[in-house]
Amino acid sequence: MRILRLAALAIAAVVATPSAHAQTYDPKYPVCLQVYKGWNDYYFECGYTSLAQCNMSASGRAAQCVVNPYYEGGKRRGQRPRRDY
């Protein structure tokens, strides 16, 4: 009986665990195209280097261009610290 309770508890714990989602943004590109397939169903295509390039792909589709919040490039090197007088 004790093993049956432990097995039921283990099964309940596995079922209650939320699934992990894959990362949708590619950190190599600054612009992503968000394509809508339904009311709450959409996906991202991150492979655009500019908003103009992305807007050309979004034209005529249920989609919009968004700035990639996880973009790794474009950081300035050698920037001098700001002086406050």
Score class of each variant (00 low, 15 high):
10 A>H: 12
18 P>L: 11
80 R>F: 05
72 E>Y: 07
25 Y>D: 06
74 G>S: 11
3 I>G: 07
13 A>E: 00
37 K>P: 06
35 V>D: 03
23 Q>E: 15
3 I>V: 11
57 S>D: 05
72 E>K: 05
75 K>C: 01
19 S>F: 03
30 P>F: 03
40 N>L: 10
69 P>W: 06
75 K>N: 00
80 R>N: 11
21 H>M: 01
61 R>F: 04
54 C>V: 02
50 S>R: 11
34 Q>A: 01
78 G>I: 00
70 Y>C: 07
43 Y>K: 11
25 Y>M: 00
3 I>A: 07
9 L>D: 07
41 D>I: 14
9 L>Q: 14
24 T>K: 07
39 W>R: 15
59 S>W: 11
46 C>G: 10
66 V>G: 08
41 D>R: 14
7 A>N: 12
36 Y>S: 04
59 S>D: 15
33 L>Q: 01
9 L>A: 05
68 N>S: 15
71 Y>K: 15
69 P>A: 09
5 R>V: 14
67 V>K: 14
60 G>D: 10
39 W>V: 15
65 C>Y: 10
57 S>T: 02
6 L>W: 04
1 M>H: 13
82 R>T: 11
64 Q>G: 09
29 Y>A: 10
82 R>M: 11
11 I>T: 13
41 D>K: 14
77 R>S: 00
45 E>F: 12
37 K>A: 06
51 L>H: 02
26 D>C: 13
32 C>F: 06
22 A>W: 02
66 V>Q: 04
21 H>W: 00
29 Y>V: 01
17 T>N: 06
80 R>G: 10
59 S>Y: 15
12 A>Y: 09
37 K>M: 12
66 V>K: 14
22 A>G: 08
13 A>I: 05
18 P>T: 13
61 R>K: 12
43 Y>N: 09
77 R>F: 01
3 I>Y: 07
76 R>T: 05
11 I>P: 08
10 A>Q: 08
72 E>H: 01
68 N>Y: 11
79 Q>W: 03
38 G>V: 12
78 G>M: 00
34 Q>C: 04
20 A>R: 06
25 Y>H: 11
77 R>T: 05
32 C>T: 09
69 P>I: 03
21 H>F: 02
70 Y>I: 00
7 A>W: 05
2 R>G: 08
33 L>T: 01
44 F>C: 12
17 T>I: 04
48 Y>R: 02
64 Q>M: 11
9 L>S: 02
41 D>M: 13
57 S>A: 07
33 L>K: 00
74 G>R: 07
21 H>N: 02
8 A>H: 07
38 G>Q: 12
14 V>S: 14
38 G>H: 06
49 T>C: 09
62 A>K: 10
54 C>Y: 08
13 A>Q: 03
75 K>A: 01
75 K>E: 09
3 I>S: 12
53 Q>K: 05
